[in-house]
Nucleic acid binder design. Structure first.
Lengths: 193, 193
DNA sequence: CCCTTTTCACCTAGGTGGTAAGAT
DNA sequence: ATCTTACCACCTAGGTGAAAAGGG
């Protein structure tokens, strides 16, 4: 498992409704796994610092202490889990369907949704854990679990965008935001002809 | 865990494309679980007999032996797993997104898809397994795993409907088949007025 | 002939940022 | 003021049976 390399990590900010996908989403290349062994691959999110943040005068500034309580789920298992090392190394492992929310009440009912607090800074982490073939934990194998942290994936949670560049990046690249692209009508006409 | 009761089980036939949902879908009521213990709940599908089947003269008749090889995945973990007994007992546990296919090649790439052979009869089974809080197996708890079999949920896999009643049942009740309902236009006009 | 695959129009389900209203 | 929520038009993604085409 050592020697794992990073292809691309793409996370910035996002906006939530009651439930929004993380976009841009996390995406990793894994290498040097045992092709025949089985692994669970998942992401969790931890506080990156102990501050509230605020966007003021065009910059993010610290503002007081983070709330101590950290309720709800913070882990998202990749839907392909469990699977073989060969599967995980075949192509990029993407977390495009990872969902985020600030709704604490949803933590009990809805699985696979990460609960965060607005205006806090977070650090996603990648976990790769070898397991038995049926996906269940093995105490011996679990001790070989690995955690990977990429500081460039830190982000601040918001309920409304503060940065026009981030908004434009999402409009340009998120398929679901296609209706907000300036050239959308033009492209459509070109396809018709 | 003994004393679990059955609310409704609704499975008949279905048609696959490369990948179709089971409809009507399996749905169970669970009771007498430990509200604070954690469980994995999943369905698997086994051969109900050792025959090929054929629809001839308006009836299903046996025809030769089943193919011995049974490739690919036969298990579908409920997406809420793992979860507490209280969660599983709160409301009906439905398997509406369980996907079926006859495409053996897809067994490696796509998780959570059950691979079957056409014109064979199958028996779904419900599994309830107590696990540790993080969802991993515990040898002691696994020994208390329970399996429930309801013969009324047997079905024969097909690639084209042979029974007009089944087709009509699916058109009437599957939301995705709304466009095929005879009264669809009428209902739409009524909503407009 | 019987069974499987492909393609299609038509639908449900769900993910966007914008906007306005609400909350503190 | 500043942050959050509710709703919206508009889009992508994906689940239907029918019908036609493909295959042994």
């Amino acid at each position: 498992m050592p020697g794992m390399t990073l292809a691309s990590v793409r996370v910035f900010h996002w906006k939530w409704h009651r439930l929004r996908r993380m976009f841009p989403f996390l995406s990793f290349n894994l290498s040097a796994l045992d092709p025949t062994a089985h692994y669970n691959v998942y992401v969790d999110v931890i506080l990156a610092d102990q501050h509230h943040w605020r966007y003021q005068g065009g910059k993010w500034v610290q503002c007081g202490k983070a709330e101590g309580t950290m309720p709800g789920n913070r882990t998202y298992m990749h839907p392909d889990s469990p699977n073989t090392g060969a599967h995980w190394m075949r192509q990029e492992v993407s977390f495009g369907k990872l969902k985020l929310t600030n709704n604490k009440g949803s933590s009990n009912n809805v699985a696979q949704m990460i609960v965060l607090q607005s205006l806090h800074k977070y650090q996603p982490r990648l976990h790769v854990v070898e397991v038995k073939e049926d996906g269940s934990d093995d105490p011996f194998l679990s001790s070989k679990a690995q955690v990977f942290v990429f500081p460039e994936t830190q982000f601040i949670a918001v309920t409304a965008y503060q940065n026009a560049d981030i908004t434009q990046l999402k409009i340009d690249h998120n398929p679901f935001a296609k209706g907000f692209r300036d050239n959308y009508d033009t492209l459509y006409v070109q396809q018709e002809s």
